[in-house]
Write a protein that binds this DNA or RNA. Structure first.
Length: 574
RNA sequence: CGGAGUGUAGCGCAGUCUGGUAGCGCACCUGGUUUGGGACCAGGGGGUCGAAGGUUCGAGUCCUUUCACUCCGACCA
């Protein structure tokens, strides 16, 4: 490709809404273009080319693993989503609209329903399984707050795959195969990543794993163990409970103690009593939104712990939790609901509450006494009094012990680029996707689902591979193999050598970009740095001494070599 | 939805308080000089000032309504 013919509107200016390296360089490098803001982007020729290359890697590995590509209709009848029950559950991210006949449709954010519909029409027997079907197509999610360029756009390219099985065991086999296949894809793309345990979110199911591209700019916090393989999204991370005791708080029953100040924060009380925050019980109110109702709920945690909202949401089966106003807490009748301990359970019978597992059967605790300026010391939380109310709702903190090996867990940031789920019969059952088993009995198919954010991967690659000058594409994602710069287009010798290298290499199948523009050296080298082709050849004024430079974008290394040898050197390299 | 802010040329902005010819930088076009780090000189094209209504002799500027977008908090590939 000749640069003079290429549509790459590179720019010196950083768009004012771009904060992330990937967002800045994808726009400045002329790969993508914003469409009236709000998370919509056009892919310009180079962006599209890279997208296709990444997509090809994904497709290649999936096909090798026995998956089959299909393309589902982009517009989805809303009735399918009613059947699965997700029409309500999915909420406002789902874009809904009507056609001229007033029928309801949605733009698919993910396509479990559509794929199940496809399969239930064409698969009837266990003999036709297993089956793993996927598509690489646009998805639409009406994000509350799109941002960070391709990282969180509203329209994005996603590979979504779905597998169908006659047994849970076979689904597990496929799940493991997909984990391995995903590892190959991410490795080929040159990404540093980690596979972690995850929450299943709106897709549902159990035993899901996320593929996290490690980057400081990542939006997810992941918990990793330095001593073993354990890694988990903080939304799903677990820890080994640490149990201490302080017998000085112990009493045969409990002790009521008064204090005179108003600030009843754990911090303040801890200082006042000279007892570690660990022994305090704190109470957190949330407004829980359920399918049919909204209710104030309460969570109890150790003074040293923090509520993990996703875990808390799951523990009560709510759709989401929001912060209540002070008034809502008062109106709920739970505002003075204090210890649910010993004989002092002051919670109404229908109250929804959860106590963190870290407090199960613990003694010598300190907590509010249901009235101002009083606390109880020496309390116990006994499992049998709160049978169904214990749950893991606290966030893992750095330094907590790994549940597998006891190592000190640490936080790191990641970009969720892939997610694989064990669905079971969650969709096949309501949608009536059944098969006849060996006994001629009709049973729902067992499913798995597997996603990769293809357009997000472009952003992930740049987050991991850039410097202060621009992009540095990895081998399999690069827009070209080689970028040749003719420094002065009026210098006939430079042009002649550039053209010779370009034509020769092109004829041998090397994907070469020749910068033949009538520009000065400055813009040309800047564009090389911005666009991030891994290697370049600089034909400039040193040609007068018979020398050219071979450049490596990563580190901007320049190697001088003779203009006689450069062609054979390049032929050997590409 | 809550809070803060912005809409003026493809992009980045000034002009709005105090109403009176639509501006600047980058980009673009023509000619020339220049050619190792986004160079210079001269000339040029490009705007329903987010939209609607109002006040006024006159509105980018004042008033009302409305829409869009950005930033900070709860979603997800």
């Amino acid at each position: 490709m000749r640069f003079s013919r290429l549509l790459v509107p590179t720019s010196k200016e950083t768009p004012n809404d771009a904060t992330l390296a990937s967002h800045i360089y994808l726009i400045r490098g002329g790969f993508i273009q914003s469409v009236g803001g709000s998370g919509l982007y056009n892919f310009l020729p180079l962006g599209k080319k890279i997208l296709d290359k990444v997509r090809a890697v994904v497709k290649d590995e999936l096909d090798k693993a026995g998956c089959q590509e299909v393309a589902l209709s982009f517009v989805t009848p809303a009735t399918l989503w009613e059947e699965s029950g997700r029409l309500e559950k999915y909420g406002k991210e789902l874009l809904r609209f009507k056609d001229r006949k007033n029928n309801d449709f949605i733009l698919g954010p993910t396509h479990e329903e559509m794929m199940v519909n496809l399969v239930r029409q064409s698969v009837k027997s266990y003999k036709q399984l297993p089956l793993n079907l996927y598509q690489i197509n646009l998805k639409f999610r009406d994000e509350i707050r799109p941002r960070f360029g391709l990282m969180r756009g509203r329209e994005f390219l996603m590979k979504d795959g779905y597998s169908f099985h006659a047994s849970v065991e076979d689904m597990h086999r496929e799940f493991a195969l997909m984990e391995e296949t995903y590892k190959k894809i991410f490795t080929r793309l040159g990404l540093e990543f980690r596979v972690v345990e995850a929450d299943s979110g709106a897709i549902g199911g159990s035993g899901s794993k996320e593929f996290m591209v490690l980057a400081d700019s990542g939006e997810d916090t992941i918990v990793v163990c330095p001593d073993c393989k354990y890694g988990a999204n903080i939304e799903a991370a677990v820890k080994k409970l640490k149990i201490y005791d302080d017998t000085s708080i112990r009493s045969t029953n409990y002790v009521e103690e008064e204090y005179i100040f108003d600030d009843s924060s754990i911090e303040n009380l801890s200082n006042y009593l000279g007892k570690d925050k660990y022994f305090f019980v704190k109470k957190i109110y949330k407004k829980a939104i359920f399918k049919d109702e909204t209710k104030i709920v309460v969570f109890f945690l150790r003074g040293t712990d923090y509520l993990e909202e996703t875990k808390a949401t799951n523990s009560i089966g709510a759709l989401e939790l929001v912060d209540p106003t002070q008034q809502e807490i008062e109106d709920s009748g739970l505002s003075s609901a204090g210890p649910i301990i010993g004989d002092y359970n002051s919670l109404p019978n229908d109250a929804i509450y959860r106590i963190d597992n870290g407090l199960k059967n613990q003694h010598n605790l300190i907590m509010g006494a249901n009235s101002k300026n009083k606390i109880f010391k020496g309390m116990s939380l006994i499992e049998e009094r709160h049978k169904d109310s214990f749950a893991d709702i606290s966030a893992v903190q750095e330094g907590d012990a790994c549940i597998h090996c006891g190592g000190a867990l640490t936080y790191t940031k990641g970009i969720e680029a892939g997610h694989i789920f064990q669905l079971g019969t969650q969709y096949s059952e309501p949608l009536g996707c059944n098969l006849l088993d060996e006994n001629g009995k009709s049973v729902p198919m067992v499913m798995g689902t597997y996603g990769i954010g293809v357009s997000r991967l472009l952003a992930g690659i740049i987050e991991q591979n850039h410097d202060d000058k621009g992009c540095i594409w990895t081998k399999e994602s690069a827009p070209f193999d080689l970028h040749i710069i003719i420094s002065n287009i009026k210098d006939k010798a430079q042009v002649a050598l550039g053209e010779k290298l370009y034509e020769t290499l092109k004829s041998k199948g090397v994907d070469v970009l020749l910068d033949d523009r009538k520009e000065r050296f400055g813009p040309k080298i800047k564009d090389f740095e911005l666009m991030g082709v891994p290697h370049g050849v600089l034909i400039g004024k040193k040609l007068a001494d018979g020398m050219v430079e071979f450049m490596t974008r990563d580190g901007m290394l320049k190697e001088e070599m003779s203009s006689e040898e450069i062609l054979s050197f390049l032929e050997g390299k590409f």
